[in-house]
Design a protein around this nucleic acid. Structure first.
Length: 576
RNA sequence: GGUCUCGUGGUGAAGUUGGAGUUCACGCCGGCCUGUCAAGCCGGAGGUCGCGGGUUCGAGUCCCGUCGGGACCGCCA
């Protein structure tokens, strides 16, 4: 039907006869004898000159045949990639008329209520922004696949109907018709299957896998999302990081045309110490500064005896933060578990303006200013608490005060390694809780700390972080029953309970499991950042709203009584 | 489960102390227009102010509830 795409025509095509197909983006009429019509397809827009008065309206579908010609001098449109040419002597074939769209099919729809955009998603996707995002996504998928294939990974598909597992995220359940009262679960990840594929000798597995979790939605979370899921046998942690880095960097290169430098590494402890968070955004400074020793013998009661005192400096922000905003920061710090927040403003003469300044000695004040490098006009925030609380509170405030919008460069990838094996203590059992999952391998240097200081045991676990977004995580796994028992014991899980909960998973490991490890990262998040979008809904063709509904299809819908009968399900009346 | 925030013609907004569904821009319909380009000029149509109560002589506006959107907390091993 067509010889070219609208957006690809340039001066080099002048003189050629072309046929184009697309939608009428805009018409500009000048009486019966002359009208300019912008024809749009996924590649762009081109101007067609119509002189026979044919009635073309917005979003009509048309095939236009004509001749490419240079625009008369003075009428070139520099804002259009095809702006140097136009299509003349046009024959118009209306393939389909159209009702006026509910919103303009251009950048103006960026301001339209998202619910309306989702209700008419097929019109929203006609827009340049969504066309670009969806194509960025396809490029990422394709580059990731190619990188994995290149490295000898084998694509294996795993089931969508799986058994429900006791741990982890809330699952979606699917009723069994053949066995009423029994349910499948939709996979929150292919975790179990990919480890069994290692036992099965696949050696290197990957899959672009759909994962489903019935947890509340966010800007960076949907019920269903895509992961590059991978697992490798006979490898070290370095091998896994290298393989995943190759996939991520290849994807970035495919989108941006530029291969990022190799991904730097930071330990979890250093990330917490310097950025106060396990997913640091390295695009900006404002690092946490260690101040504990400065106040070792302070008279100021809020600092005296504190396990950890740290501060951050917000350059030039003193004036901006009046009493109300400072109170809001303090409230936020307290909500995160801090006992309080100390703020200090550096005055023009270098003195400190702060409600607590009078409690700090001259030496302490000057040491503080020197340590954080404060200059006149700066705002300094200090927290004194347990190490973890101090780090987390300041890390959050650092992000609140300094984090640039997502579309602002550069891209800063970082591997965060040596995550703790256990995080916190279960209030009911008094036992440590797993940081990643219970099959995660402890760091070989820390095995002797299991009994003495379990919370300091590091894991062979790692996260990939890009500009403050957690892209994904992985670990080297436990492949020996003795080691697994040791971890279960620390977690307070008996042999009997382990067999009951994880037996179907543990038994295969008795048949010769190779050492292995893997990783999974979220493609939606990577695509969103590479596309400069704050929200993964913008890079998903048909996403759900925060309440889990689809305004276009109206899913979820009520089931017919007959369907429920067949499944042996009776629903409760709506709660009043 | 919680906190905050938004809801006004098809779209985006404004709406003051509570005083007539009022206003602006875009879009839509009709007319004019031979070089426009998010064209221009003239005219017109288009409304359950999300929904339900309450206060009031009178509610888009104040109060209560509810539904829907969004951000966040909890949750996401």
């Amino acid at each position: 039907m067509r010889t070219h795409l609208c957006g690809e025509l340039r001066s080099e095509h002048i003189g050629q006869s072309v046929s184009l197909c697309g939608w009428i983006a805009k018409r500009r009429e000048h009486g019966d004898k002359l009208a300019f019509v912008d024809l749009r397809d996924h590649s762009g827009i081109v101007q067609c000159v119509i002189d026979d008065g044919v009635d073309l309206r917005s979003e009509y579908v048309a095939r236009i045949t004509g001749t490419v010609r240079a625009r008369p001098s003075g009428t070139v449109n520099a804002n259009l990639s095809t702006g140097e040419i136009e299509i003349g002597e046009c024959t118009v074939e209306i393939l389909r008329s159209a009702d006026p769209p509910p919103f303009p099919i251009d950048a103006r729809a960026d301001d339209v209520d998202e619910n309306v955009r989702l209700q008419y998603r097929y019109l929203d996707i006609r827009r340049e922004r969504m066309q670009r995002n969806i194509r960025v996504r396809a490029k990422v998928n394709s580059a990731v696949r190619a990188a994995m294939e290149r490295q000898g990974f084998v694509e294996v598909e795993t089931p969508m109907l799986v058994p429900s597992t006791p741990e982890g995220a809330r699952e979606f359940l699917v009723p069994s018709r053949k066995e009423p009262g029994s349910f499948y679960a939709l996979p929150q990840s292919p975790q179990l299957f990919k480890q069994l594929l290692m036992v099965a000798g696949i050696d290197r597995y990957y899959q672009i896998a759909r994962c489903l979790r019935d947890e509340d939605l966010r800007a960076d979370r949907q019920y269903e999302f895509m992961q590059l899921d991978a697992e490798m046998s006979f490898v070290t942690q370095d091998d896994v990081l290298a393989a995943i880095s190759e996939a991520v960097l290849s994807a970035a290169e495919a989108v941006t045309g530029e291969r990022p430098p190799s991904i730097e590494r930071i330990t979890w402890r250093e990330a917490m110490d310097r950025y106060g968070i396990d997913k640091p955004d390295l695009r900006f400074g404002m690092e946490l500064v260690e101040l504990t020793s400065i106040f070792a013998s302070t008279e100021f009661k809020a600092f005296a005896g504190a396990a950890s005192i740290k501060g951050i400096r917000a350059p030039g922000r003193a004036e901006e933060f009046g009493r109300n905003k400072l109170d809001a920061l303090t409230d936020r710090a307290k909500k995160m578990g801090a006992k309080g927040l100390v703020w200090l403003k550096v005055a023009a003469d270098g003195s400190l303006d702060s409600p607590v300044a009078k409690f700090l000695s001259t030496n302490e004040q000057s040491a503080l200013v020197a340590a954080v490098g404060a200059e006149p006009g700066d705002l300094v925030l200090v927290v004194a608490d347990e190490w973890m609380t101090t780090c987390e509170v300041l890390g959050q405030l650092r992000n609140d005060l300094g984090r640039p919008p997502v579309h602002q460069g550069p891209y800063r990838y970082v591997w965060v390694v040596e995550f703790p094996l256990f995080v916190g203590v279960d209030k009911e059992t008094g036992r440590p809780k797993p940081g990643h999952h219970p099959f995660c391998r402890p760091h070989p240097d820390d095995l002797d700390k299991f009994e003495t200081d379990p919370l300091s045991v590091r894991a062979m676990a790692y996260d990939l972080v890009l500009n403050g977004w957690e892209l994904g995580s992985g670990s080297i796994r436990i492949h020996e029953p003795e080691m697994q028992r040791k971890v279960f014991t620390a977690l307070g899980i008996s042999d009997e309970e382990a067999n009951r909960k994880f037996g179907f998973f543990l038994k295969p490991f008795t048949f010769g499991a190779p050492p292995h490890g893997g990783f999974a990262f979220g493609l939606d998040r990577l695509v969103a950042i590479l596309a400069g979008e704050e929200n993964i809904r913008e890079v998903i063709a048909f996403p759900k709203t925060q309440s889990g509904q689809d305004p276009m299809t109206n899913a979820p819908t009520r089931a017919e009584a007959k369907q429920l009968d067949e499944l042996g399900i009776r629903t409760l009346p709506p709660k009043v």
